[in-house]
């Protein structure tokens, strides 16, 4: 579903991604973790071209993301993206946020869009907030709306960029719950997160990144019980202490 080969990226002289190789099959859930500044956010932002790459190649659903003829907007409709800071549109109601892509980008009818938006909001448990503005919601609620919004165009792939890092601790659970259900339904997902419990429960593989490189890829059980890489060992002990 996603295939990255020798992906490299520089910010000026500084190499932030170094020969990244990573493939996901349909329905697979991969969690990317690593210390801050290790390039994990940059990595998933290259998948939908929020960041450009200087070397290597990325395929999504069999199509070369960086091919010259590739229309970036039609590509992005097939990739749901959830941000750390939610980025809901504050001037639209919850319902309008979720309908935005359907009505304005895919040009679907209001009626059809509304039905799908309502069912998505029902799924994330926010049907009663349908007419509220994002400013009136808690962080956890906003992030659940953001997930519903990302799901609206029925993308085959979902990317999560630290979806719970900006939340108060008591709201992390409700967002993770939505993500777990999504994973169980067979969604292909790449999640950058520090939530190790989540990784353990739903990830098919865990990717550990440091200094712009993938240092270790393993199934969760192996990764958490016997990490190979010394940096990964230290990282895990730090996370657990926290």
């Amino acid at each position: 579903m996603i295939k990255m080969e020798k992906v490299s990226k520089w910010f000026g002289q500084h190499q932030v991604l170094n020969d990244i190789d990573l493939s996901l099959n349909k329905g697979e859930v991969v969690v990317i973790c690593g210390p801050s500044g290790s390039g994990k956010s940059t990595l998933i932002r290259t998948i939908n071209r929020l960041e450009s790459i200087q070397g290597g190649r990325i395929e999504v659903d069999g199509e070369d993301v960086y091919a010259g003829h590739m229309n970036v907007n039609s590509l992005r409709q097939k990739i749901g993206f959830v941000f750390q800071q939610f980025n809901l549109f504050p001037h639209m109601t919850v319902l309008d946020n979720v309908m935005f892509g359907l009505v304005n980008i895919q040009k679907r009818s209001k009626k059809e869009s509304m039905e799908r938006a309502r069912s998505l909001l029902d799924r994330v448990g926010l049907l009663e907030k349908i007419n509220a503005y994002p400013g009136a919601l808690s962080g956890g609620q906003q992030q659940r709306v953001a997930i519903a919004r990302a799901l609206a165009q029925q993308p085959p792939v979902m990317l999560f960029d630290e979806p719970t890092s900006a939340l108060d601790p008591e709201m992390v659970g409700e967002v993770l719950q939505v993500m777990k259900e999504l994973a169980k339904e067979g969604m292909t997902m790449v999640c950058v997160t520090h939530e190790m419990g989540f990784a353990r429960e739903v990830a098919d593989r865990v990717v550990f990144m440091d200094a712009g490189q993938i240092q270790e890829i393993a199934d969760p059980e192996t990764f958490f019980t016997s990490p190979q890489h010394p940096r990964a060992q230290r990282f895990l002990s730090d996370v657990h202490i926290r």
């Binding site: 929020l50 907007n73 992005r76 409709q77 549109f89 935005f100 980008i105 165009q153």
Partner: peptide
């Protein structure tokens, strides 16, 4: 900039983002 990124990552064009997301705000 998160507003622009959120809109663009759903696949909306520059002009649509301007018209529906940036300018109204």
């Amino acid at each position: 900039s998160g507003q622009i990124e959120a809109s663009r990552s759903m696949g909306s064009s520059y002009m649509l983002t301007m018209r529906k997301v940036i300018l109204p705000q």
